[in-house]
């Protein structure tokens, strides 16, 4: 594997290990909308998972346009974030996991967020999977590398 690919993948994996939350962007009729969600990524970095109640605005938005962007970062709300923080933006398409796959998905999701078991197992809660197309990794303030997944 090329050195750059390894570096980018490792940096993203490291970030996903330490960061539990990400900001999900959806849109409806041209109006962008941002929400904080607890996420988990699979080993290949091909998919991101999060859970949401079906009554939410983000769920409604996804029903009308499944294209999403999601931002995950390592900021700690200090000045030093400017040079130290790493941010990853993923773009891709979201879909709800239903049927037999859901139970497997829920277990995987809870392996990172065990405290959310009541929430994620509720009837009204949907487990969403984002098929990631590209990651954009921002480091050193303005250095941006793209990782193309599909």
């Amino acid at each position: 594997m090329h050195e750059n690919t390894r570096y980018v993948e490792e940096t993203i994996r490291k970030l996903f290990q330490i960061q539990k939350l990400g900001v999900l962007s959806t849109q409806n009729s041209g109006q962008p909308y941002a929400s904080l969600v607890a996420f988990v990524a699979d080993e290949e970095l091909a998919h991101l998972y999060f859970a949401t109640a079906r009554t939410t605005r983000k769920y409604h938005n996804l029903e009308t346009d499944p294209r999403v962007a999601m931002l995950m970062d390592s900021r700690s709300n200090l000045d030093s974030d400017i040079h130290e923080a790493v941010a990853v933006t993923a773009i891709g398409t979201a879909s709800e996991i239903r049927g037999q796959d859901k139970s497997h998905g829920v277990n995987f999701y809870l392996s990172k967020h065990p405290y959310l078991q009541d929430f994620v197992r509720a009837e009204s809660c949907a487990l969403i999977r984002i098929a990631v197309k590209t990651y954009y990794l921002v480091s050193r303030f303005q250095q941006v590398m793209e990782l193309h997944i599909s």
């Binding site: 090329h2 750059n4 690919t5 050193r140 941006v144 193309h148």
Partner: peptide, 13 residues
């Protein structure tokens, strides 16, 4: 270049 690679630069500082 990096044709075979999954990684491409977007912005270099």
């Amino acid at each position: 270049g990096m044709d075979d690679e999954k990684v491409k630069p977007r912005q270099l500082r």
